[in-house]
Design a protein around this nucleic acid. Structure first.
Length: 194
DNA sequence: AGCCATGCACCG
DNA sequence: CGGTGCATGGCT
């Protein structure tokens, strides 16, 4: 599986190559699953769809409290106010630095300096999402997913969700029949419904 | 106008 | 009642 970022839109996605297996390969499949479990490191993440004030030139980024506490390095609360510099790499290996400060009444986590440069460079708008990942080395990774700017005016009879699934199943069945490989793409919408 | 700080008030 | 979106004000 590959983690990628589209060079045009900069959206993060995962590409997975799926290999159909028959019953003879069941042992190998189980073995690889065991390997995955052993490899598994607790990589934590959070994503948030950007609000109007998150993307406006007037303010910074309001970080959900739990998200900041889970993903960001702990602040030194003896400082007044508690603040630190965050560095996060996007999937093009470009580093972005933000000032992370905890202030306000009531107190809240904010990203200030560096945030507007990120917003404008990536051309993010309200409704788009940002994704922060803390990997196994405690490095911060940063990704974005853009909102659907132009909801497709297609009639549901042309491209319904059901027919989409039928298409995927057909592709999988065809690959299985020929015992060949096929790929699927996954664009995360990790904070839907939150 | 851009950027950062502060506090109100809404909403679950 | 806690959390955060938003309006507002100051400073450059």
């Amino acid at each position: 599986m590959l983690f990628q970022a589209d060079p045009e839109t900069d959206e993060v996605y995962a590409q997975m190559a799926l290999q159909p297996v028959n019953k003879c390969d069941k042992e190998a499949l189980l073995a690889s699953e065991m390997g995955l479990k052993q490899n598994k490191q607790p990589t934590e993440f959070f994503s948030k769809t950007l609000t109007a004030s998150d993307t406006s030139t007037h303010g910074g980024f309001s970080v959900p409290r739990r998200a900041a506490e889970k993903i960001f390095p702990p602040l030194d609360f003896t400082m007044q106010p508690p603040a630190q510099e965050l560095v996060a790499k996007d999937l093009h290996n470009v580093s972005w630095t933000f000032r992370h400060i905890y202030r306000g009444q009531p107190k809240r986590h904010l990203l200030t300096t560096g945030w507007s440069a990120f917003i404008s460079t990536k051309r993010l708008l309200a409704g788009d999402s940002v994704l922060f990942i803390r990997d196994e080395k405690s490095q911060l990774l940063l990704g974005i997913t853009r909102a659907n700017r132009q909801p497709p005016a297609l009639s549901s009879s042309v491209l319904s969700s059901d027919r989409m699934h039928i298409g995927i199943l057909a592709a999988a069945a065809d690959a299985a029949a020929k015992n060949s490989r096929f790929s699927i793409f996954y664009i995360p919408r990790l904070d839907e419904g939150r």
